[in-house]
Amino acid sequence: MSGATRTNGSSRFRGVVDLAGVQTDRGATIYVYEAPVRVWHWVNALCVAVLIVTGYLIGAPPPSVTGEASAHFQFGYIRFAHFAAGQVLTVFFMMRIYWAFMGNRHARQIFYLPFWSATWWKGVWWEAKWYLFLTAEPKKYVAHNPLAHIAMFFTVTLGNIGMIITGFALYSEDAGRDSWQARLFGWVFTLFPNSQDVRTLHHLGLWVIVTFTILHIYAAVREEIMSRQTMIATMISGERQFRDDRDD
């Protein structure tokens, strides 16, 4: 970890409007994403990729294979991959939640929105202007920029929870009425007694996540190039490097 970082509770801050309350020096790097966060991020990304592809195929299967049914398990494998990825995603998400308690303050960011903070709203506004080409320069952010933060909270945090709940509810139908999945998630069918409705919701979730992923990857690449700080590298090494020494 190079460069000096100081945490500072004073009213003036340099370099950030994301409430991290951290000041930095020129060219400083800050250790933002601890290993569990990074590992979770990439495992999650991988699972999501598998889930999107297999999930889509579950809704719209590939052309039929020929020959005896007993000789094939094509759709079975697609579904198996989906379930496997879904379970891995769930386990890592639970680990990620655990880390929200154990990790640094940035580990908590995606689990809540600071609605009450004027500074944060200022950041939302500024970041929106930046994406609308209304300002020449973005602000600097130690962790997620406020727009990304909003998107992550709704589509990944809540999105994952929704997909896990509906996914396991659907899985419980395969596992049977007496399975632990049914005991834990069967209540979903009290809310939506027709499991076709649960599928429709789960399926709509796919598109929410696809949409997020498109925006997210684009933003990550763009900000890697355009912003005043590192992005993708940060999610790999955990360290954020700022490229200039100016305030915010």
């Binding site: 590939p62 052309p63 039929s64 294979v65 007993s70 398990f73 759709f75 079975g76």
Partner: peptide
């Protein structure tokens, strides 16, 4: 169900 798992569908 065997055809479902195999990926054999009425198209």
């Amino acid at each position: 169900r065997a055809s479902f798992d195999a990926g054999q569908f009425v198209e």
